[in-house]
Design a protein around this nucleic acid. Structure first.
Lengths: 229, 229
DNA sequence: CAACATAAAATTGCATTCAATTATTGACGA
DNA sequence: TCGTCAATAATTGAATGCAATTTTATGTTG
């Protein structure tokens, strides 16, 4: 499935990480030769990486106008989270049907890593929060489900980058812990409830603080010369 | 989302259709310059089209070994249909919650087209059978859900091409009609039941007749010189 | 000074080219 | 006769160059 052309692979992975860690914010332009130069490769490899990111929905490519980090709208955000709830409910159901000891350990270990990253206020913590959900999908053993969850979690991360508050990752860790606990007890109803409220919380964080329209004049109005505080 | 480079777009669409209509069977090799020559474009455009098909899971690309129409295993088949049931259940639930008159008409019109294609024994009928399910997803109004359903239905078609009986499309039309009827009545329980049994029927058709392993020696064993009939 | 037309620069679309990897064929020795 | 190894052919990986399109900058005019 994942076509591995060694160079564009590396670029793809790096760009993807940069986007998910919010180093590259939505809307940032990604010209082919700029990226090629950054990674010391030709435009060709950069282009292939961008094409793959576009098929992931992480970047927008408009013909003859180049690529940019995707800027999901609020409507898309709602759409994505709605589908995400559906998929993650499926994940929970499958996990409750058959949860291994090793799976629990993997989840606990991941949550611990999340805590470490958060304490170090590392940009990794943002990405790890999403990868917790991907880990859950992987533990179902379904490659397809993992695939889809990966895609939709990535898009969700992009939405948080676009609309969410800064440092929005921290609030989630406690809920992740509760979720692991419910899964350990194979309490499906509780697990689904936690997951649903967790996702709603994430979504609310997104809807709550839509970033100012990137209207330069609005921003500059606070910097007018006339009435400087 | 869908990056439109006019040339690779055309190739992508053509190859996709050819695969879904089973003109290109699983396992068929797709060398870049062969495809480029067929469409009178360079390898570059052919390559981009193949990359996109790979990200759809319709072709496998192995590094330095080229592309070929994907050959899903039986395990993958089970995985895919299991997730497909989950997604299509979501589609039904959403449609039952809010079903428009125009939507019903669109479905009926599609089913009629399926019948026409089947009577003409056109290769389109195979593809149309899958596109009925995509239409259902589109009628939910959710772009993401449509996206995912499109992907998984495509993979399912590939599985039928690999394992299913020839002309396996015909049996489904009656079930499609019943499904439209249930949706018209907004009878969610019935609609889900029909959908589930429909998908199980499709899946059974797949599991029933696994095509002979493409093992040349096995085939040639019937052509041995010793006891020629 | 603003609006518009025009020219220059930047950027992508695509084809072509060379290098690197893999598959195939044939030869050689046991 | 069988297996191993080397040479050749086929195919992909990646870079570069040219044409086309878009964006930005510039100059002109009302």
């Amino acid at each position: 499935m994942s076509s591995s052309n060694s160079r564009s692979d590396a670029i793809y992975a790096s760009l993807r990480r940069a986007i998910l860690e919010q180093a590259l914010r939505p809307g940032v332009k990604l010209p082919e030769d700029t990226i090629g130069d950054s990674f010391s490769v030709s435009r060709t490899s950069a282009r292939n990486a961008l094409l793959r990111l576009a098929s992931d929905g992480l970047v927008d490519i408009r013909p003859n106008r180049g690529a940019a980090v995707a800027m999901p709208s609020l409507a898309e955000a709602e759409d994505i989270f709605s589908l995400r709830r559906c998929l993650e409910r499926e994940v929970i159901e499958r996990l409750c049907r058959k949860m291994s000891k090793d799976g629990i350990d993997a989840m606990l270990s991941h949550v611990r890593e999340e805590e470490r990253a958060l304490k170090a206020s590392s940009p990794r913590s943002i990405r790890l929060a999403g990868e917790f959900h991907i880990l859950l999908a992987e533990l179902t053993g379904s490659e397809e489900l993992t695939n889809f969850v990966t895609r939709i979690v990535s898009r969700s991360s992009l939405i948080l980058a676009r609309f969410g508050r800064p440092h929005s990752a921290e609030c989630g860790i406690r809920e992740h812990q509760q979720l692991v606990e419910a899964l350990r007890e194979q309490d499906q109803a509780l697990a689904i409830e936690i997951m649903d409220s967790h996702l709603h919380a994430v979504e609310d964080r997104a809807n709550n603080d839509p970033d100012q329209e990137p209207d330069v004049s609005a921003i500059l109005s606070r910097y007018l010369i006339s009435d400087q505080p």
